[in-house]
Each structure stands twice: as C-alpha cells, then as structure tokens.
Design a protein around this nucleic acid. Sequence first.
DNA 1: TTTT
DNA 2: TTTT
Lengths: 166, 166, 166, 166
Amino acid sequence: MSLNKVMLIGRLGADPELKYSQSGTPVARMRIATSETYTDREGNRQESTEWHTVVVFQRQAENCANYLSKGSMVYVEGSLQTRQWQDQQGQNRYTTEIKGQRVQFLDRKGDGPGAPAQGGGERRSFQQPQQSQQRGGRQAPPADDGFDDLGPAFPSEVSGMDDVPF
Amino acid sequence: MSLNKVMLIGRLGADPELKYSQSGTPVARMRIATSETYTDREGNRQESTEWHTVVVFQRQAENCANYLSKGSMVYVEGSLQTRQWQDQQGQNRYTTEIKGQRVQFLDRKGDGPGAPAQGGGERRSFQQPQQSQQRGGRQAPPADDGFDDLGPAFPSEVSGMDDVPF
Amino acid sequence: MSLNKVMLIGRLGADPELKYSQSGTPVARMRIATSETYTDREGNRQESTEWHTVVVFQRQAENCANYLSKGSMVYVEGSLQTRQWQDQQGQNRYTTEIKGQRVQFLDRKGDGPGAPAQGGGERRSFQQPQQSQQRGGRQAPPADDGFDDLGPAFPSEVSGMDDVPF
Amino acid sequence: MSLNKVMLIGRLGADPELKYSQSGTPVARMRIATSETYTDREGNRQESTEWHTVVVFQRQAENCANYLSKGSMVYVEGSLQTRQWQDQQGQNRYTTEIKGQRVQFLDRKGDGPGAPAQGGGERRSFQQPQQSQQRGGRQAPPADDGFDDLGPAFPSEVSGMDDVPF
DNA sequence: TTTT
DNA sequence: TTTT
C-alpha cells in the first residue's frame, strides 16, 4: 500500500523537448516553474521559484510538443521517479523527475479548433519543422489532447452524471 | 482555470451496485467509508466515519463490480459532482457524489491471476450470476484492472524511465 | 487507514457568509464554482460548472470574510463531510460540504500590505460593517493570511531548505 | 498562480535522522519507500520501489524522530524542493527532496497514550538517549502529533461540523 | 534502505 | 451564483 503522487501548476521555462526512446516511444521533457510567494520578517512580499523536470510519454508527449511552448501554463499530475546515471568520472548521480501521467493545458481555454488564433496555442509543428513559422498548418487537436480544464481526465460526455441509473 | 479533485482511501460498506444507463453504459455505485481518528479533550482516541458515494463508468464500473465487494479497500481519485433530482413531493433535492476517474484495488496486492485464491479478490460474477457462489469461474483480470498500487495510473512498462533519451 | 482529501481551484459565486457557532467559533461558508471544459461530439467547446460549498473555521473563517468576495479565485484543500439535517416535513436530508483546512487566495498575488489598492483584495470590514463601503480602513493582513501561492502551507522562512544540516 | 504538491504513503527505510540547523531549528530527514506493482507482459506481478527523501522541521521533526522508526508507515504531504550543493570536485550537484508540511503516522492507529505498548509506536528517546532501550519512559504524545488518520490536519473538535450555523 |  |  503506497502512494506516489505529484501535482503541479506552473509554466514551462522552455519549449518541450521531444525525443524517441530506442524502442520508438515518444518522450517529452519539460522544465516547469512553480513560484511560492510569502511575506518575510520585514513584511515584504518575497517570491521563490522552484524548477521541476517533467517527463511524459506516448501520445501525450507528442501533444505537449505540439501544443505547449515556453511560457505555457500547465497542470501536471504524476509520480516521482529518481533515475541513477553515471557522470563522466564514472560516479553515480541521481536525478529526480516527475513522470507525468496527465498534463492539462491551462492557457487559452475556450479556444477550440474553430477559434481564431491569437499568438499562442496553435499546433507547433515538430513533425513538420519546415512549417514551424508559417502558422498555416493548424489542425484540430485530437479529442483528448489536454485542452481541458482541471476536472476529470476524460470528457464529461463519456461518463456524464445526467443519466446515472440510481 | 479550475481544479475539482477528490482523493479517497477507504473501504466499501457494501458490494458495488452495477447498472446500465439508458444508452447502455455500465455504471457502478459504491459506498466508501473513510475514518478519522483524533484525540478528544479527555485524551481519548475517538473515531468518526464519513461515508462517500462513488460512481464509476464503463470498463472500470465492470471491474469494480467484478473484483470489489463489501469491505474491500480502495483508492479513488475523482471529482465532485452534485446532481439535482426531485423527491416525491416534487421538491428539488441535491446529491453530491464522487465521479471516480480512477479506482485502485488495495487488497491482496501481489496476488495476480496465477496466485491462489484466499477468500477475497476473486472475480465476482455479475455477468454470470448463476455461478456467483461457486467461485470456480475465475478469470485473469484485464491488463489495467485496478490491481495496482497507488503509483501511476498506467503500467510502468508502458512508460518506463529506464530508457529516457535525455 | 483512510484518506479524505478535496482540492479545488475556483471562484466564489458570492461574498463569504460569516457566522458564529453557539460556542463562539467563527464559521465562514462559501460557494465556489469549478468549470470543466470539454469538446463535444460536434467538436464544439462546452463548459459545465460545478458548485461546491466550503466551510472554514476560526481565524481562517475571518480571513476569508475579510479578504474574499464574489468572484475571488481561491485554492481550497479540505475534506468531504456530509451533514444530516431535517427539513420542515421532518425528513432526514443530507448536505455534503467541504470542510476547508486551507484556503489560499489566488487573486492579486504580490499585493501585500504596502501595495496600492486596485479594486480588489482590500480588507472587507465584516467586523465594522458601518465602514463597509468606504474602503479606507485597510489593514495589513496577518502573517499567515492566505495571500500566498499554492506551495507549502507555512512561510518558507519558517522551514527553509537553505540551512538543512544534512 | 502555481501549485507544488506531493503526497506519499510509504514506509521508512531507516530511523529518522534528527539534526539542528545553525539557527537551532530541529530538522528531521527520512527515507521513504513507495512501491508500485504492475503486471508485466508475461502476466507476472512485478514490483518497483521508489525511494524519497523527506525533510521536516520544527516540532514535527521532533515528533517524527520520537515516534517513527525503520519500517513505520506514514502519509506525507509536502512540496518538491531541489537544493544545489557542491561536491568535492567543486561541481554543482542537485538533490530533490520533499519538504514535508504534514506527516501522519499510519501504524497502530487507535493506540493513544493509554493503550498498551506492543512492540512499536512508543516514544523513541532522542532527547534522553540513555533511556533508549528501556522503554519505560513513555510519554503521552502531544495533541497534534501525527497519530491521526488521513482526514483533516486538525482535530475534528476544533472545527466540527455539528454546530455549523447555516 | 521499507513492506506484503 | 463565479470566471474566461
């Protein structure tokens, strides 16, 4: 019986990096900042920023790479994982990352595929890099793409309460 | 920007009820108890129990009906939803339920399909009620059936950190 | 072993109501909306809103009454509690509420006591109702008043990592 | 607007280490294991363990040192923090820890100060090391000591719903 | 380095 | 009854 849960709301410090594992799995890595404000002894507002590394896989990795960029605000739910690796001196080093199970995109809510583009949220074209600046190739996002608010992970219509037979 | 999140760990007060919505969607309803212990002013341990109604849908509803029973311990992640309905006097009444997005089964961990049955955890036969007492019809649970610990919602192998290409 | 946890981010539908229990405990009640957006089958953005009742106690109740108002955005952490009561017909009715253990104020962060007032965030004067429209009586909020981001519940300086002796 | 939240349930891999910062603040460090079980492709149960470092401060640090030991099960709520430090080669290294805001003790619930000792849960005597094996010096734990279930962080009686004036 |  |  154990629980390993992380929940973050923050902004990307850079565009997501998308790579592929040796077995071909899409993997995206994102740096996300969370900020805590507090009042110090002199009564001044202070802010301290914490940086997190989030790794996501599969279709979600591709969605993140396609729709998120530096400055995007996201909600991330995942678990903590510490990886061991070796530095150039052959010493064991450890890196703690958040394995993201769910990433929700918090910018530009209400802006679906038919909405006018306004400087953000359009599909970034990782897979067609030659179009990356031309902004003409926007596509409708897939059904469960992260453009959702922080309610359930799945669309309401799939599991609506309207028709609960109890 | 909003968040609507509930996390519970508790035990079922009764077997799950499985019904089907008019559109044929499987829906399971479970009553789950959480208990809080605290020390009163006299220094005595006190316990207060809270009862929650959890509703799950689709395949997860069937898994709950098949594998959970009165007394089972579960982890539930979901969202709050309040339904309006009318009582016999035609008055509006409200019922708050937890729409479960994830239910993890916390009993009998380590007991996979090949493990010996020991008084719990076997498949209950909602869909073959005539076998419901004979216990002979056990089946291997499906791949993502809730018999998992409280880590990520998805199997590690699907998104292992071993092969992160960064 | 049980867990009963609710986390909400949403906006108040009305000003908080502050009352006092028979034993004199300050109790604030707030209605909070969370909204979920999703894409329906026709590909249109839909929004569904859920309303929650949050009850907080003691100093936090007073802080909420003093600093929050209709439209304020808050983060609430608490637990689910269902109260039984009797309607006029003497029938048992049940109301589920969130007992708030922590309420963070998400509007106007960075606006401490020395910051200029700009249409929100000033202290509402529940305890001096005759001044409630004149807005001149602003006070410095107390040290742990909810004007904090969604990090730890307690100020960093109390438990900073800078000086961890390991 | 940001959120930085970690929730763990797991067991201590060793007794807590209690130290004092230069300013005299008690600081406890604990290693906590969470285990995830999953079914591999061959249908076998697999378990993978993740180790976390939790740091707590002040009175909670002392409570952890006094009441927890190797093997104790705890619920931890906190936030992620990455500290920078320098190794012997003068290189920057980073360590990610969980700053615990709340630690609940999950073993032996219902065993208050008047309950018979049975091999666990008694006060460990960090501050009176000469008594550390004799087990005679048990003390009543303080009011909010972590011997509580996973409900609200504060005792029910302080903020009971029985007397809500709405 | 925990536990079942 | 909130908000974008």
